[in-house]
Simulated scan of single mutants.
Amino acid sequence: MLISNLLSYMTEENLNEWMERFRSWGPLPGIFLTFLKSFIPPLPTAVIVGVNAAAYGLWFGFLYSWIGLIAGCMTTFLIVRAIASHPYFLRWAERPKVQKSLTWARRNAFSFVFILSMMPLGPFALVNTAAAIVRMPKLAFFFAIAGGKAIMVLAVSYVGHDLGRFIERPYELLYVVGFLALSFWGSRKAEAYFTRSSSE
């Protein structure tokens, strides 16, 4: 019930009002909202990141969203990594479909996390959990999350910073789509390289 009420509140208009109310708190509201995403997966990432960019400006909005997302991902990763031997996680990891995903994740952990981190919509909590269960090195996880989230947050912040401009000139969204496509192509090339290297 609480989650449902929270999600219904998370509209662009309500978030803008909330940000105005707590503007005196500096970057904390923007960081906190994106931090929550790792613990409440249904929260609308694109809306929150876009509102941050509109409230703080493109670069500060990007920075605060990026910090919040990384902090949330690292927190959930470290928590799960610390309790991965709990029977609940052991039973979850024994499921055939999960085993298949975990096997691939063990082999290609960095590219697995990096690619999925680029997506504005995605199973972030599952990505963090899977990376923790396969004991992905902390530093590698941090760099994969930091790189993937930077690409995603920059693209969404760029649109959210001046949404009216893209409503008036929607064709300019092609630049954003091109940036994401290029980033995705590069990440797929990196994935192919890492996969080939790990099998040799």
Rank of each mutant, 00 (worst) to 15 (best):
F166I: 14
V156Q: 05
M136E: 08
L116H: 03
V153Y: 06
I151Q: 03
I151C: 06
A132M: 09
W185S: 10
I151P: 01
V159N: 02
L180K: 00
V156P: 04
P170H: 12
M136D: 03
V159L: 13
L174M: 14
L173R: 01
V159H: 02
L139K: 13
A155V: 14
L154F: 15
M119C: 11
L126N: 02
S117F: 01
K189G: 00
Y158G: 07
K189R: 13
G122I: 10
V156C: 08
M119S: 09
I145F: 02
V156G: 06
K189F: 02
L139E: 11
S183R: 10
L154E: 05
Y158Q: 09
M136H: 06
F142S: 09
G147A: 10
M152T: 02
F179A: 15
F124Y: 02
A150W: 08
R188Y: 13
G147N: 01
L163Y: 13
I151W: 00
S157L: 07
A131R: 07
G160S: 08
G122H: 05
A140L: 12
R188A: 02
M118D: 03
G148Y: 03
L182V: 14
A130R: 04
G148D: 07
S117M: 04
V159P: 00
L174F: 15
K149S: 09
S187I: 04
S187E: 06
S183C: 15
F141Q: 08
R169M: 11
A125M: 05
